[in-house]
Design a protein around this nucleic acid. Sequence first.
DNA 1: TTGAAAGCGCTAACAA
DNA 2: TTGTTAGCGCTTTCAA
Lengths: 347, 347
Amino acid sequence: MPEQSPGSRPTLEAVAARAGVSRATASRVVNGGDGVRKPLVDKVLRAVDELGYIPNHAARTLVTRRTGAVAVVIAEPEIRIFSDPFFSQQIRGISKELTAHDTQLVLLLVEGPGDFDRIARYLSGGHVDGALAFSLHTDDPLPAITRRAGIPTVYGGRPGWTADPGDQAVPYVDADNRGGARVAVQYLRDLGRERIAHIGGPPDQTSAMDRLDGYRDVLLDVDPTLVAEGAFTVESGARAMAGLLERRPDLDAVFVANDLMASGALRVLRERGVSVPEQVAIVGFDDMDGVAEETDPPLTTVSQDIEGQGRLMARLLLRGLDRDRTGNGPAPDSVITPTTLVRRASA
Amino acid sequence: MPEQSPGSRPTLEAVAARAGVSRATASRVVNGGDGVRKPLVDKVLRAVDELGYIPNHAARTLVTRRTGAVAVVIAEPEIRIFSDPFFSQQIRGISKELTAHDTQLVLLLVEGPGDFDRIARYLSGGHVDGALAFSLHTDDPLPAITRRAGIPTVYGGRPGWTADPGDQAVPYVDADNRGGARVAVQYLRDLGRERIAHIGGPPDQTSAMDRLDGYRDVLLDVDPTLVAEGAFTVESGARAMAGLLERRPDLDAVFVANDLMASGALRVLRERGVSVPEQVAIVGFDDMDGVAEETDPPLTTVSQDIEGQGRLMARLLLRGLDRDRTGNGPAPDSVITPTTLVRRASA
DNA sequence: TTGAAAGCGCTAACAA
DNA sequence: TTGTTAGCGCTTTCAA
């Protein structure tokens, strides 16, 4: 590829001239070559190569009204944003799928509660064809924004807000949190545990609620003193475990809503000399890389394919965009991805 | 803002008509309103508001040749990509600075060694005005790519490759790794430690080399048995510490090239019953959130403003772009950001 | 199968 | 200070 002095790239016009064809034909070739005879295709391709032609994206977008870009909106206000491996793996999956479809990823970090205006303006500005968003909190203003901007959006995680009746359902991708929790708790029961406690996540996140619901599905009429609330962080898990131990020294198992909290809980148990799994069995959730396998003892936990969820989100969105363009195919539906119990040493 | 049925947004033309002015005047107002009389400005603004006008980005880019977007290229092949709080904090800083200048962040994740072609094509395709990249490895192909694509780029971290003579220096932002290391080691010496070991990072990363150089600056002619090599991970730090202890049971301090490895080292020392800081003093590097403060004992370490580095990268790039446009101002220079020693309990 | 020509929405010379 | 007009580079009817 010849080096380009900036600002003087060859245009389609130049390619056409060099190939001895019209601009229209050159365009056809560049866009797949349908309906152009082989010799001309070759000529144009050669010209493209020799000139180092790269289509001007803005010009193309101007006429096609497609930007070839998708926004990923991350509205998690806390520090966790990227450090959370959960996000990083989803983004990885998203990136892979988008790349495979020649689509760019525009990252929109929401930097504060007053920042939604900017996001709304951007989304409405024709910069992107669609959006992927993570809606973790029940009071998230994002769904309203994307809806008003009229921009197709797929959510990661079941949105917590309740749709207005008559509104079209919002497509999302989520793990089978409830089912996974059920399997985990049932496993503890099958182990013969009788006083199974739960450390849950923040109640404004649907994943936390769903996991709690799964716990309750198995343990009908559970004693409220067996349920503690954490914040999905190591420290909060430790605190919750300590509280639980104080209230219910007789507990013999804990289903913890994520691995981070489970590792905090394990630390507390170790400090107090409670043996795991002999005295207390522990099951986590997420099968988080670099955590679940390295706790002491290694964590039995519910595994989900996070990167796969990211891919799925992107695929759903792209399919929806295609549908908008071609006007056929079914509206994108939500997808619940399966979970599996991974047995290690903690239960 | 009125809801838009997709694909039928009002154009500048419509705004102009409604305001009773020419398209040119409307354009002027939308772009700041310089040289337009107040009453007309108001009229146009009102029309913009009533119509819910949002400029078409592609059309604007087509004529101005500015995209208002910047690529962030992350070519770290390992899983660390986002989970590494280092990146996440830099990206945060970058995002903040870009947002403040109405510039979008396009995320380019390099997904494998064969993926650089795609990146090169994208960078050459006029999608973005500039790029920010993290060049951690000495054999990184990225610098060559951005140079050939003729796209202004600022690096995070001192690039490891040696520039061809006559090449213009590549602007980068980096912490004062060498100076920080010197301060750390000097501190250990002032504490009276006499056999100060070092656990270094991967030798193909400039930050690791610079920290090692700083260590050597203070401890001229250091015994090679006192230097071990890690990979910036907790586990590698633990292994390096174990090796060091075996070779040199007499060591009385370790300067570790990052906090993650330091936490691994601390674990090994604890397991072996070596008291910190009494028998062995430890100093880390990074002052990493959620790590340095929570080790046992809390880590004395060299702190750097990572988010600030991200902001700086963005600022440097934007300034360079401005310069390209206006043709004046000095060429962007590299920036070395200061480090400070944070005293906690480990030394 | 190919080419001519219209126009996507905007900015920026240039004229008035 | 305002308006007229010529494109930016591309895709896409419509005719040939």
